[in-house]
């Protein structure tokens, strides 16, 4: 293959992710995978050309500017859980077509095939530097991480498990919001998960949320913003309404940094921001500082 073709294929990718070209909202909607199977990838943040392999080896981050590419549950767990410690729960839970929405189950099946998971969140237990926790990792590769019955149920069961076993709970959020195809039942998942967190919180449980790119809509307006400690992964988008909706309302273009974790930290809604490479160490330090508190329960 001529060397030029290599870059040609990348062009499509570059168009979608270039710094100035396309806003985050578009990225949310087009559901494009982040790392193409190509040799090179252009960093959407600093524009440097990177070896795909090198990016993967570097926690899917840009070695120049530390831009974080979106990652799925497997990569995330690999960098957070101690090796071999993750035990998945509710692994095969899958959606039914509550509202008889045409084509919904086919769509689910398609995502199951392409993502290798049955729903938009993976939950289980693991250890982080030898401290046992209940962990949930949302995966935007599955239907943009949207929350329907299964996501709501798995999150709620994870909370209940943490409560019964008196374990800390960590959830990595990544979601386009409520799953439209399940209509009002998706909305009810917001109340369901939030109610469970209330009980867990009253029982003294430690709940840490990690906001990853992108976290929006019904997930922001429920369990994502209810952590005792809310950590933002550097550069992640977080918001309630979609950027485009707001732009249509105010008839103005919004600045790039609007609705990032950095922005919301300035506004007082995020405890701290951390680069991906430092995530595990930070979680570990927080867990250690809570150990006595947890044991007292």
């Amino acid at each position: 293959m001529p060397i030029g073709d290599l870059f040609k294929k990348n062009l499509k990718y570059i168009e979608l992710h270039s710094q100035n070209g396309v806003d985050r909202e578009e990225r949310v909607e087009k559901e494009v995978p982040y790392i193409p199977d190509n040799l090179f990838v252009k960093c959407p943040s600093c524009g440097e050309k990177l070896y795909t392999e090198e990016v993967a080896a570097n926690l899917n981050s840009c070695k120049y500017c530390e831009h974080h590419f979106r990652i799925g549950n497997v990569d995330r767990l690999k960098m957070i859980a101690d090796e071999g410690s993750f035990v998945e729960i509710d692994k095969n839970m899958t959606s039914v077509n509550t509202l008889d929405y045409p084509g919904y189950l086919e769509k689910i099946a398609g995502y199951q095939k392409s993502s290798g998971i049955t729903e938009a969140i993976v939950t289980g237990t693991c250890t982080i530097n030898s401290i046992k926790v209940v962990i949930g990792v949302m995966d935007s590769n599955f239907m943009m991480g949207s929350m329907g019955s299964v996501v709501g149920e798995k999150v709620t069961r994870a909370i209940e498990k943490a409560m019964v076993e008196k374990l800390p709970l960590i959830i990595f959020t990544a979601s386009g919001g409520a799953r439209m195809q399940e209509g009002i039942i998706s909305l009810m998942q917001m109340a369901k998960t939030s109610s469970a967190i209330k009980r867990f919180s009253d029982a003294g449980g430690l709940y840490i949320t990690v906001i990853t790119d992108p976290t929006t809509g019904g997930v922001t307006a429920s369990f994502a913003m209810l952590g005792d400690i809310i950590i933002g992964e550097k550069g992640a988008l977080i918001g309630f309404a979609g950027k485009r909706v707001i732009e249509q309302t105010i008839k103005q273009k919004l600045p790039d940094e609007f609705q990032t974790v950095e922005f919301l930290k300035e506004k007082g809604f995020i405890d701290t921001i951390v680069a991906r490479k430092d995530m595990k160490a930070l979680l570990s330090r927080i867990l250690i500082l809570h150990q006595e508190v947890q044991n007292d329960n």
Binding site: M190, S201, A221, S222, A224, F240, A241, I246, Q259, K267
Partner: peptide, 20 residues
């Protein structure tokens, strides 16, 4: 859905109400 609502934590405000 507006800039001011996002700045003042619309998501957090709703989430807190659900929980409380």
């Amino acid at each position: 859905c507006g800039v001011t609502a996002e700045e003042r934590g619309q998501g957090e405000a709703i989430a807190k109400n659900l929980m409380e």
